[in-house]
Amino acid sequence: MQRDSFIFYRSFYEGIKELPRDIQGEVLTAIMEYSLNGETTENLKPVAKAIFTLVKPQIDSNNQRFENGKKGGRPTKKKTEQKPNDNQTKTKPIPNVNDNVYVNVNDNVDDDVLIDVDELKKKYIKNEKLVNAFCDNNGISKNELFDGLEKFTKNLKDKNRFLEKEKEYVTYFKNWFVKKEKSSAKKESKTAAQAFKERIYGSSTN
């Protein structure tokens, strides 16, 4: 193997600069012969041989990289798209399935302000987006909603709750309405079951 050039590191120079000139010459000649021609210099003096022995692994490493470069370097690995195995599933965005989400009452509402409940009822009725959302989510008409608001507001005043925060009023009404509807459905179911039982077995007599 022959080369036209090689790398001479500062560490090589630092290692031999304090040596006598004749030893420096032996080391430099040995380095050049091995780096350029691949030949090892024989009969080196002990100190020169020791220095060359320390330098030789670095020269070998450089020569190996040189040979690899002549062959085109390391072959590049083909990138393969990793496919999920049978036990993996692709993450999909989870849709919002909360049917009780309502539009904001008023972005400018001050949550710390207490308002008369009758005034809150009027503001609720005038909020078309809120009304439509509530009716759609609960499957009721606007008249049924307005009737519910009337009863709910009266219920608050019966409990001496004449002032409420606007957003809390909306939340309290939603919870009150859902609870009332569940109670009503339970009563209707019980009544229907009783009527069915009477039709089958007849009404009880004393």
Rank of each mutant, 00 (worst) to 15 (best):
G72M: 05
N62K: 06
N96Y: 02
N96D: 13
E26L: 13
P75H: 09
R21I: 13
Y169F: 10
G202E: 00
E188Q: 05
F66C: 05
E14K: 05
S141P: 09
G72V: 05
K197S: 09
T89E: 07
Q24C: 13
T80N: 06
F52G: 08
Y34V: 06
F196L: 12
K187I: 09
T41I: 12
P20T: 15
R74T: 15
V170D: 11
M32S: 15
F52L: 07
V170M: 03
L44H: 09
K45Y: 08
A192G: 07
T89G: 04
D147T: 11
E164H: 04
Q64H: 08
N143G: 08
A133K: 15
F177V: 08
M1F: 03
T41M: 14
K187H: 04
K182F: 06
E26K: 15
K70G: 14
S35E: 00
F6R: 01
F146L: 08
S203Y: 10
K167R: 14
F66D: 06
R199G: 10
S11C: 03
E42Q: 10
P57G: 01
S184E: 11
M1L: 04
N62P: 05
K129I: 12
F12C: 01
T205H: 05
Y169V: 04
I59Y: 01
K165T: 00
V103Y: 14
N96W: 08
N175A: 07
R74F: 13
K159D: 13
S141I: 03
E166D: 05
Q64A: 04
E128L: 06
E14A: 07
